[in-house]
Each structure stands twice: as structure tokens, then as C-alpha cells.
Simulated scan of single mutants.
Amino acid sequence: MTRVLVLNSGSSSVKYRLFDGADTVAKGLIERIGESGGDAENHDAALQRIMEETDLDGLAAVGHRVVHGGPDFTEATVIDDEVVSRIEALVPLAPLHQPAALSGIEVARKRLPSVPQVAVFDTAFHATIPPAGYTWAIDAGLAERWQIRRYGFHGTSHAYVARRTAALLGRPASDTNVITLHLGNGASACAVEGGRSVATSMGLSPLDGLVMGTRSGAIDPTVIFHLHRVAGLPIDEIETSLTRHAGLVGLTGENDLRAVLSRRAGGDPAATLAFDVYTRRIREYVGAYLAVLGRVDAITFTAGVGENAPDVRAESLSGLEPLGIAVDPARNASGAEVISPGGSPIAVCVVPTDEELEIADQSRSALLR
């Protein structure tokens, strides 16, 4: 039960990591699948290469990252034909991500037929959000028919980081309230009450909420109507614009925050505005989740930006000192795990995420149920 292969299948890539317990014994990334000069002709060839390069003897399970679990998949699930069919039915809710995961599952089941396959869903951690938190005030019949609700994503990261934060504070997760901020090219916030998600910023899809590298985050829906009716843009073009040409890249032409920070340091007005929009949106969600939780023990930054951008951490929480939230400049710059001043009512932490380890752990747990 110790060795688990974790696969994160994208449309043109497969990221993999082999665990023995909590230890990583092999990892890699196969890119540009199906492209001229790429690492593999197709997903089948990619997995064959992984099998050739990696010792998979004694494998207990293959854990697959699946972005969308819909309303029914609320925990990691051992895969069979029925589960595959149910995941396929969710493609309309995640058309950019779900097909790639299904390709990885299909190939792994064929190549490793005697090894249990487990689907670990980005949405599952958020299944504990109460109805008042996942229901939008639209026609109830439409919402039920088309499965329209807040699902949330980055669940494996938020679950792992909230639990690690509790351990860092020396408290049981069941008695710790944390606001987790997963800030990468994709970004989301989550309110975690006693180890359970009760609110999150992403919605029906990963487009909602915080400003991201190429995604707009939350906007007035009328923007879409206006671009369609007045500007004459087709719906598909609007969707592409909001998912691939918005966010930081829409404001600056850069989707890498490091480039935005460099330009901001040089006085670039567009980069300065983008930084201010980005951090203000984070601050707004922190304030909202303070209200949702009532009592907050920690605010934790994670993922590529959250772990490596002190300026973002400081500005995102600036002005919140009256609420017991502060960032110590020296600690923040040094890369400390706790960056709030000693004795602060609410700890501010930086915890590296490990979504693959969380997937491996959840895969083992699924085999024991």
C-alpha cells in the first residue's frame, strides 16, 4: 500500500510522480504530446515511456488528478467502467480539462490492468460547502437541470495546506480555522473551518474569483452580454478571451507575475495597476472569509506566487492591522514559515503545497474504504 503513481494528464502533457510512502522515488514531465518534435506521439506512448523509465513493481495504485467531480463525487473514488462514464458526463462542466484526465485514465487502465486506478477530484474537498454557499440566485429549475452551482477547485491543495497550517500552529485541524490562498497561474481562496471547506472563490469552473495569469476572475455577467450584443463577438471568442487573454496577461501582456513585478519596480503604469487589481481582489476575499468564518487562526499563502512573492503577500494584507492581521517585513523577506509578528491574533503563514502527495494519500485511503 505504499507505492503510488500519481498522474496529472493535460491535453498535451503528462506530469507524473512515484511515491513510496511520503517519499518521492521518481518524477517527470512529458510535454508537447502529439506535436512535432514532442516527447511522445500520444498519451499511450507517454505512459509507455513512464513505464520504461520508472520501476513500477509493487504498485498499489495509480492516482489520477481529475479537475471536475460534479455534485456527486465528493471523495477520491476507485475507477471502474461506471465511474469513467460518470466522469465523461461531466465534460461539459470542464471541457478544457476533463478529456485529458479521461485519456490518462484510459491509457493507465489499459497499460496497468491489474493495478487499481483512483480518481482524485479537485472539487471534492469543497463538497462540504453549505447550500447557502454554493447556490446562486438564478432560476432554481435551470440550476438543477444543468447542474449549475459553485463547485470550487484546487481542493487537493487547499486540503493539504490547511492541514499543514494546523500542524505548524501545533493545533488539531479539527479545531483550526484557516483562510488558504492558492496563488499560482491559477488562483483561488478558500475558507476552511475545522478542516472542512465552507467557502471558495472558484465557481462552476476555474474562471471565477481571484485575478489569475490568463483568467479574469469574477466579473459582472453583463460584460459577456455586452461583448456579444454590442461588440458582436461570438460566445466562443468571449470565453477564450476571458480564460486565455484576461487576468494579468490581459492587463499587461504578461501572464508571469515575476515579469509584472519587474516592470512595476521600473515604474510601469500598466504593471502597477495590474498588481493593485490582483492584490486588492485577494484582500477583498480575505475580508469576506473573515466574515464567513467568524474566528480565523491563520491566513496561509501557497503555490508559486504565494510561496515566492513577498510583495504580493504584504500588499494583499495591507491595512488589515485593525483586524489582527499583519505581516512582519523581515520575516516576510526571509522566507519564514510564519511571517506575522510574534503574538499576532491571526498568524500569517507560508506553506508549500504538495498536491501530488495529497493525491497519493487520498488514493491509498480510497483503497481502504
Rank of each mutant, 00 (worst) to 15 (best):
Asp236Lys: 13
Leu204His: 04
Ser216Phe: 00
Leu227Glu: 01
Ile235Asp: 09
Thr222Cys: 10
His228Asn: 14
Val198Gly: 07
Ala218Ser: 15
Arg196Phe: 12
Gly209Ile: 02
Asp236His: 13
Gly203Lys: 14
His226Val: 07
Val211His: 02
Leu233Val: 13
Ser201Gly: 09
His226Phe: 15
Phe225Gln: 07
Val211Ser: 05
Gly213Met: 07
Val230Cys: 13
Ala231Gly: 09
Pro206Tyr: 11
Arg196Val: 06
Ser197Asn: 10
Ser197Met: 15
Leu233His: 14
Arg229Asp: 15
Pro206His: 12
Asp208Gly: 01
Ala218Phe: 03
Met212Gln: 09
Gly203Asn: 07
Ser205Val: 04
Val211Glu: 02
Leu227Thr: 01
Leu227Pro: 02
Ala199His: 11
Gly213Leu: 11
Met212Ala: 08
Gly209Thr: 00
Val223Gly: 06
Gly217Thr: 00
Ser197Trp: 11
Gly209Lys: 00
Asp236Pro: 06
Thr214Gly: 04
Leu210Arg: 03
Ser216Tyr: 00
Ser197Glu: 11
Leu207Ser: 05
Leu210Met: 06
Gly203Gln: 09
Gly213Gln: 07
Ser216Gln: 02
Val230Ile: 13
Pro221Lys: 08
Pro221His: 05
Leu227Phe: 08
Ala199Gly: 05
Gly232Lys: 12
Ala231Pro: 06
Pro234Asn: 06
Ile224Val: 15
Val211Asn: 05
His226Ala: 13
Ser201Leu: 13
Asp220Gly: 08
Pro206Asn: 06
Leu233Asp: 05
Gly194Glu: 10
Ala231Arg: 15
